[in-house]
Structure formats: structure tokens, C-alpha cells
Write a protein that binds this DNA or RNA. Sequence first.
DNA 1: TCCTTTTGTCACTGTTTGGTGACATCATAT
DNA 2: ATATGATGTCACCAAACAGTGACAAAAGGA
Lengths: 212, 212
Amino acid sequence: MSKKPKGQPKPVRDRGGRERALVEAAKQVLAEDGFQGFGVNAVARRAGCDKQLIYRYFGGVEGLVGAIGAELAERLRDHLAPLAAMGRPKSYTELVQRMALGLMQALREDLLLRRITAWEVSDSSALVKSLTAARSRGMALWVGETRGDLVPPAVVDAAAVNAVIIAAVQHLVIAAASAGEFAGLALRDEADWERARGAVKALVNSVYEVRP
Amino acid sequence: MSKKPKGQPKPVRDRGGRERALVEAAKQVLAEDGFQGFGVNAVARRAGCDKQLIYRYFGGVEGLVGAIGAELAERLRDHLAPLAAMGRPKSYTELVQRMALGLMQALREDLLLRRITAWEVSDSSALVKSLTAARSRGMALWVGETRGDLVPPAVVDAAAVNAVIIAAVQHLVIAAASAGEFAGLALRDEADWERARGAVKALVNSVYEVRP
DNA sequence: TCCTTTTGTCACTGTTTGGTGACATCATAT
DNA sequence: ATATGATGTCACCAAACAGTGACAAAAGGA
């Protein structure tokens, strides 16, 4: 054993692979442990390489978050893709409903999206701004694609109403994932979520309904 | 300088006062630095006494959070008190509107409430559960007091709808405090917030409106 | 008075964190 | 072959963290 030929399995020497491994590890850490335990040590540990590489290749944890953000818009788009297969919405009401319920489903399915959304409201650091930007870019992209020529009724402040709807969906899903319920409404099995969907649909429906 | 007789101004020896000072410091740290920087060191530093006292009098940081929770229901009640002065709401719609807008105002005014609400969705640890419980107790208390004999229209799932409304308000205020806007809706000056209030009112109004 | 308990502070441990300098190794260009 | 830069790992640093044992001083009961 002059040189320990088995001690280090392989110093692989593959920069691209390491970078990808680091971003992947960062996403895993963020998804599983949340933004609390997020840092260079945890990510490097999970990626199985030295944290120095994070500084060298990404300039620190900021660059790593930036790399996650770069994938984020596409990731959200993928989640909303099935909605596009349903064909064009017939009314503005239907458009907003789809957006709200699609976002709800996406957040329920995607732990990382959920964690990032929670991060956004708990931290005003510049770190998170890029993530927020990427996420809303993804949303705006989808809306732009499927809106067509549908316009909201002029009597309501659609921008404000939609912001409120989106806020509701985000908070509901995030809080429910933490506690299994919110404001007395159980949110565990699919029947519970059907109630939530029904409420959102009722709200959107009634607020955009043209009244005689 | 054999014993530094002037070094310690006064070891006041007032347990009750120290306990109150620690809880007060804990609230300040939580409000100003958020739950990220929250811990025995920060609280003891702010309170100007040794962290050992936290362990002795509160059994650790959990007991400290519990003490905050104990004040929380009352704190929320105080914020909602002005609403009670408006007299009984004339309809269920008005009841829910008041609750939603009152909660919005309370969260906008009270940094601590906001931080705790953000904490609740970002952390599922047992630490936070007591806070969540205290907050919803405060809400339920107020609703129970002012509901009277008002009942929601039977056609809508009021529990689900109200949960959605509350979620919207909480998320909107918390996110806006972090970023100054949400989902493209600026939320800085009072005119912006008037749009948000209008949207919430419109939603509540239309969903609970009995249609012919 | 003496003894015990309470109150408050200090000092220390062990761990984790972000961050950096040093070094061996491999690839490549000269 | 030899210099140069890229890649990867290790060892270390100072700071902050949670938690604990020890000790001095005061308060109060015997």
C-alpha cells in the first residue's frame, strides 16, 4: 500500500458533473430540510464534494440559488403544462380558475416549489428576490400563452382580485403542508382538498360573474 | 482593581422583572430579526441578562415561546377590538368582511404578529404549534363574540371559503411586507392597500350574496 | 446566628457555521 | 520536457450557537 490506490475511489475531475451535482444537492437540501438548514456545508455534504467548489464555481451560496432560479420558471411551466392540453378557456372566469387550481396542484405536488414559496415570505434578502422573479416569470408566461383575447369584466379590479386569489392558494397549500389544516379546515385527504378547490372556484366564479 | 466593585451596577435580584424582561426581549428579537436569528443568545443579549435564566425560568427556548403564545390571543383581540365598537354586523357577509379586513389591518400594524404568521408556515416544529393554536384561538374568540345569530347561506361551504379568505389576507400582508408587492400588485402606500381591500370585499361580497 | 435556597453571572464545553489558504493532481499548451 | 492553469480535497480559522457546571451574593427560615 504505497500509494493507497483504493483510498480515494476517484477524484472524478468532471466540472460539469460537479456543478450539476451541487445544484441538485442544493435543491434536495432546500426541499427536504427547508431554507433553515440551507448553506454551503449542508449542500456540499449532500453533493459529496468539498464546499470550496461552491465558492469557485458559483461564487458562493448566492450563485447556487441563482442556478436554482434559472430552472424554476421552466419547472413551474412543466407543472402547468397539463392545463394547456385542456384547450383554450372559454371565459376569463375559467382562465383564472385554471390558473388558481393549477397553481394549487403544482404546489401540492412539488415540495421544492412549496419551500421556495415559504422562503419568499419569510426572508426579504436579495438571495430570494431572484427566486421570486423566476417564479412569477413562469406564471406570467403561462398566463400570456393561454389568455388569448379574454379580458376581465371592467367592473372589477382584476389585478387585485387575482393577486388575492393567488395569495390564498399559496398560503393554503404551504400552511397545510406544515400543519395538515388551516383556519379550522382540515387539509389532509383528497376530499378535504376538494372542499378547498370548491371554495376557490366559488370565489372566482362569483366575483367575475356578470350580474344583471 | 481587585474585584471590580463598580463593574456590576446592580444585580437587581427581581425574578418577576427578569422574566418579564426576557419575554419582552424575546418578542423584540422575534419582531425585529425574525425567527431566523431567534435563540437563547440573542434573547439574553437583548434582555441584558444571562441566558442561564432562560433555562432556569422557562426551561429553554420552548418555554419562552410558550410565554409569548400566552399573550398572543389577547394581543390579537386588542387589535380586533375597534371592530366591536362598530356595532353588530348586519349580515354574514359583513361579518366575514370585517374579520378579513380587521385581520389585514392587525397584521399590517403588528410586526410581531406578522413574523409569527410567517414562522407558522415555514416551520412545522412543535415550537410553533402553540403559537398557531393561540392565534386561531384569538380569532375564534372574536368571531364567537360578534357572530350573534348570523349564519352563512347554506349553498356555500362557508368554512372552506373563510379559510381561503383568511389565507389570502395573511399571505398578502406577509409577502407585501417582504417585497412591497405581490403577484404584480404593488402594496406600498395606502392607495395600493385600498385596492387590496376592495378586492377582498368584492370577493366576500359576491360569494355570499344570495342570487335570485 | 447559621444554614439553605434563590438569584444572577461567569466560564467553559462541544458543535456548527461561513470562509480561506495550501497543496496534490491532472490536462494542456509551449 | 516543462511551465501553466484547472480541478479537487484537506486543514484550518474566527464566530456563533446551545447547553451546563461552578460560584458569589443576597434573602429568608431555623
